[in-house]
Write a protein that binds this DNA or RNA. Structure first.
Lengths: 137, 137
DNA sequence: GTTAAATACTACAAACAAGTAGCATTTATG
DNA sequence: CATAAATGCTACTTGTTTGTAGTATTTAAC
């Protein structure tokens, strides 16, 4: 149950880009729009590009734009690419393997909550978050 | 949305102690029962003692035992004492203050899931996890 | 072709979390 | 009183994550 700062940065970046999904964004522009240290942001953009969420266009007039439709990119995929799936799905007691048996008191208590989190992350796409009702104000 | 390794250790320790809540546990015994580095475990026990979950008895034949009834200690309190409440309740985009408005796309999507997590942690006591049905096998 | 504006790569630095060590203090036991 | 077995305090070490810097590469514009 763990979202790193870097994953949160990725949410901000991709969530922002998804507002206008066909635009080509430069790192410089994104840095103006979002409060993330510039060099770190640039490195993260390269990583997100390697992960296949966005694609980079090099050279002058270059930048980043989505590699796939935003409706096809889920929050869970983003988490997974940075922190790994276990950061969410892992054992709440921190054990490497789930030793669920009569001696694990946490399992039943936590399982439902964890599943709710996984469901939300898995079902929510970058398109969804920008289509949400409150955005129609 | 973040449980540190230390908090997970605390869950293991207190969860284990709660199985027999009147017993006085020495650090050495707990180290035998639970796989946590001994010195780190000892330091953590002192911290949990300062936080008021358990109390320490010094000197030979000393150890640790609950300072309050296990039904009165919630998982949320434990998280709060180590990682702070914001580790769970904080903004999923990592902002210091929630700037919920028409421009925050994540808010509605995440709020319900976050609340479910907070509810589970707040409603579950150390007693609850050991009274759970599966324990009756 | 040269320049300028963009991304890519790689190494280093700083901050934070986790783990270790030494020694002090407390108290039951003989 | 001396010893042994426990916790308490504080500093240090290690590992991981976050942030920074330098330099290389790519490509549009002139």
């Amino acid at each position: 149950m763990n979202l790193s700062k870097t994953t949160k940065y990725a949410f901000r970046i991709l969530g922002h880009m998804a507002k206008d999904e066909k635009v080509l964004y430069s790192a410089q522009q994104l840095h103006k729009d979002i409060d993330i240290p510039e060099r770190y942001l640039r490195r993260l953009l390269t990583d997100l590009s390697k992960s296949g969420f966005i694609k980079s266009i090099q050279g002058r007039q270059g930048g980043f734009t989505f590699a796939r439709d935003t409706s096809k990119i889920t929050l869970m995929e983003i988490v997974d690419s940075i922190d790994g799936k276990d950061s969410i799905d892992g054992c709440i007691l921190g054990y490497d393997v789930c030793v669920f048996n009569y001696s694990c008191p946490m399992h039943n208590v936590w399982e439902e909550t964890k599943q709710k989190t996984i469901d939300t992350l898995t079902k929510t796409s970058l398109k969804d978050i920008n289509n949400h009702p409150h955005d129609v104000f």
